[in-house]
Amino acid sequence: MADRNRIAVVGLGEVHPPQGTSQRMMASEAARLAILDAGLRIEDIDGAIDLRRTGGGGDRATYSDTFTRVLGLKGVTFYFTIGRGGALAGLATAAATGFLDRGLAKYIVCVAAVDDWSKAELSKKQGHRGMQHTEKEGYWGKALGDLRAGSHHSWMAAKHMATYGTTSEQLGAIAVAQRQWAGLNPTAKMNGRPMTIEDHQNSPWVVEPYHRLDCSLISDGAIAFVLTTEDRAKDLKQKPVYVSGQGFGEVAEDLWWEKKNLTHMAVPKARDLAFQQAGIALDDIDVAQLYDCFTGEVLLQLEDYGWAEKGQGGAFVASGATAPGGGGIAVNTGGGLLSNWHLGDAVGFAEAVAQIRGQAGDRQVQGANVALSTGHGGELVSPSLCSIHTTTILTGE
């Protein structure tokens, strides 16, 4: 993409407010912080995108009371919602690129917000447990127990174990490595709460073969980022972080039909498109922010991107290759969804930006200049699992 006027991330805002704060208030504050971080004024923003997981995850868009109105973004000429499962930042960035490329906007703010923790606490008071979700319909619903993400995502780990001999301890190595990264991140929910393999193995089953510590967190909070073109980015407050490559894959192309979606993700097309645009190879990646709703998804991506041969991901993570100082590839350096907090791929996207800016503090990967951020989710036909896959390459040059 060297011959194009690339798109750049120029502002970043993140908030973790007190429990019970509304989504629109969290979104408004995150947007305000991102605009301030970029050195821009509210009146400079002329486009806005709301990032949501869509109704299948229990969300409903709030068009009638948007963060743009609360924040007072009077110059916004367009506003829409985008997202599919955990693929939020990747899709929003791709959508924003079209507006910026065509000169339809100069500065676009993209915002995601969740109040899952607050809703889970309310659910607990009502005698239930876990996040509030829209009840699934059809034959994969209540009758057969596919009530939460853990129900069908666990099939991936179980199939990988049956096919390749992967062990629960190897999955646990992923959780332990990410907890080590979280220990270096002062804002991570699990900072100061170290974990061992023994802790992982002794944590209760959720859906076998997943223990509780194989599962991602639920959170309250918001992330916002401001996008603009390369020429404008150079004059702003922060070091630009360029969106140098993007690609997308969908299991409906071939994986779902052959049931390969249980041991493979829709990575190849997304990876190849993004790498080609960015002009990079796998060895050029300094940090990888891999979508990690469960430990199994990290394992599959390490194999599908090429850091480990298919079936050898378990041995790779057990070696400590993804942990701080592991000597392999630094994975989910903020702690990821497993140990930092959960807001889809926006969490990894924000961490990638921080790493390239050199603003990651004790967890900073020295010389980080190329980051991979991935997202997935949004079942096409439940339980087709992890239908979409997004690859985004962020660079500092």
Rank of each mutant, 00 (worst) to 15 (best):
M1P: 10
M1K: 08
A2R: 15
V9G: 03
V10L: 05
G11M: 03
L12T: 08
V15W: 02
P18I: 09
M25F: 12
A27K: 07
S28Q: 14
A31Y: 07
R32A: 13
L36D: 15
A38P: 07
D44H: 11
I45S: 09
G47H: 06
L51D: 02
G56K: 11
G58E: 02
R60Y: 13
R60M: 14
T62P: 04
S64F: 14
F67H: 12
T68R: 11
R69Y: 12
L71A: 11
L73G: 04
F78P: 09
Y79I: 11
T81C: 12
L91M: 12
T93P: 05
C110V: 12
W117V: 11
E121R: 12
K125N: 13
M131K: 12
Q132Y: 11
Q132K: 12
T134G: 11
K136W: 12
Y139F: 12
L144F: 15
G145V: 10
D146M: 15
L147P: 00
G150N: 12
S154E: 11
A157L: 13
M161I: 10
T163M: 12
T166N: 10
E169C: 07
Q170R: 06
G172M: 10
W181G: 03
P186D: 10
T187K: 15
M190R: 10
D199I: 03
H200M: 06
S203F: 08
P204D: 09
Y210N: 03
D214E: 06
C215I: 07
L217K: 06
I218N: 02
S219E: 07
D220A: 02
F225Q: 05
F225S: 04
V226M: 00
V226I: 05
T229G: 04
T229S: 11
K234D: 03
L236G: 03
K237Q: 09
Q238I: 08
K239T: 09
P240V: 01
P240I: 06
V241C: 02
Y242V: 02
Y242Q: 05
S244W: 01
G245E: 00
W256V: 14
W256N: 13
W257P: 04
E258R: 15
L262H: 10
T263E: 08
H264R: 14
M265A: 10
A266V: 08
V267P: 04
A270P: 01
L273I: 10
F275I: 05
A278M: 07
G279I: 01
I280W: 02
A281T: 13
A281M: 05
L282D: 01
V287I: 01
A288D: 00
Y291T: 03
G306T: 06
W307G: 00
A321F: 01
A321R: 01
A323T: 03
G326H: 00
G327Q: 07
V331F: 05
N332R: 03
T333M: 05
S339F: 05
N340T: 10
A346D: 08
A346V: 13
V347F: 09
F349C: 02
I356F: 00
R357L: 08
Q359V: 04
A360W: 02
R363K: 09
Q364R: 07
S373A: 14
V381R: 14
S382F: 14
P383W: 06
H389Y: 15
T395E: 04
